[in-house]
């Protein structure tokens, strides 16, 4: 029963980059588990491997060695195609730089994951996207383009996009890094609310105050969890 409650099981995860003759060990034997509904802060000095780990957890990349189970399913060795499906349905990723498509409106940006999932009708996709935008507190500006919005609003759109497919896991890599501290606080409050809705969240941050809002903090150094 407890097994079923584990969203993430990582065992001996490694990532190495070949840089000419050198091998960079970005991750070394990382092992940890995350329970459903946990809110975890990931901290550590620059270059310690936080983003590398987040990319592996987000199925954006494949590990050099080790196992990664998401909701009990082994996803570390999936094909490119299968990883795209996992990214689409089970993971919401929030980036430091928002990564919204500049030519699309807020609503269209949020719609993207639903369009690629191809499972629901256009009408339902639209209402689901509007709900997600409402959830992050944006009802007014949904037909605006990212360039017409403030940083905080853009990150809200990005968060709406991350949760529109109702994923089990939300990964946020320094979501407040590009925001002033006031705006950062509202974004953190939003993530906290989402966590109260029983969503599992992993958040990378350099700010101890931000980390304090999390239930548990993982510290990384030199590619290892300490």
């Amino acid at each position: 029963m407890l097994q079923n409650n584990l969203v993430i099981q990582v065992n001996g995860l490694e990532k190495q980059y070949q840089m000419g003759d050198n091998v960079v060990h970005a991750l070394c034997a990382v092992t940890f588990t995350v329970q459903r509904g946990e809110f975890i802060a990931l901290m550590g000095p620059s270059g310690s491997g936080k983003s590398t780990l987040m990319h592996l957890l987000g199925c954006l990349d494949t590990p050099t060695a080790g196992d990664y189970r998401l909701n009990g399913r082994l996803v570390s060795q999936l094909s490119q195609r299968e990883r795209a499906v996992v990214r689409n349905r089970e993971i919401g990723f929030v980036f430091q730089t928002f990564n919204l498509l500049p030519r699309l409106t807020a609503l269209e940006n949020v719609l993207l994951p639903l369009l690629y999932s191809g499972r629901i009708s256009a009408g339902r996709a639209r209402s689901q996207s509007e709900q997600a935008l409402t959830r992050v507190g944006l009802t007014e500006r949904i037909h605006h383009k990212p360039t017409e919005m403030s940083g905080g609003q853009r990150q809200r759109v990005a968060i709406a996009r991350a949760l529109v497919n109702d994923p089990a896991l939300i990964l946020a890599d320094e979501p407040t890094g590009n925001l002033d501290s006031r705006t950062g606080e509202t974004i953190m409050a939003l993530l906290g609310e989402l966590n109260d809705d029983d969503r599992t969240i992993i958040l990378v941050t350099h700010d101890p105050d931000v980390a304090a809002a999390a239930e548990r903090t993982l510290h990384m150094k030199d590619g290892q969890i300490t």
């Binding site: 795209a84 499906v85 990214r87 349905r89 990564n99 498509l101 994951p113 690629y116 996009r161």
Partner: peptide
């Protein structure tokens, strides 16, 4: 390139 990365990150398949 970035747009392509974003589309892939939210679940676009290669064939998309």
């Amino acid at each position: 390139t970035r747009e392509i990365g974003v589309r892939m990150a939210v679940g676009a398949q290669q064939r998309d």
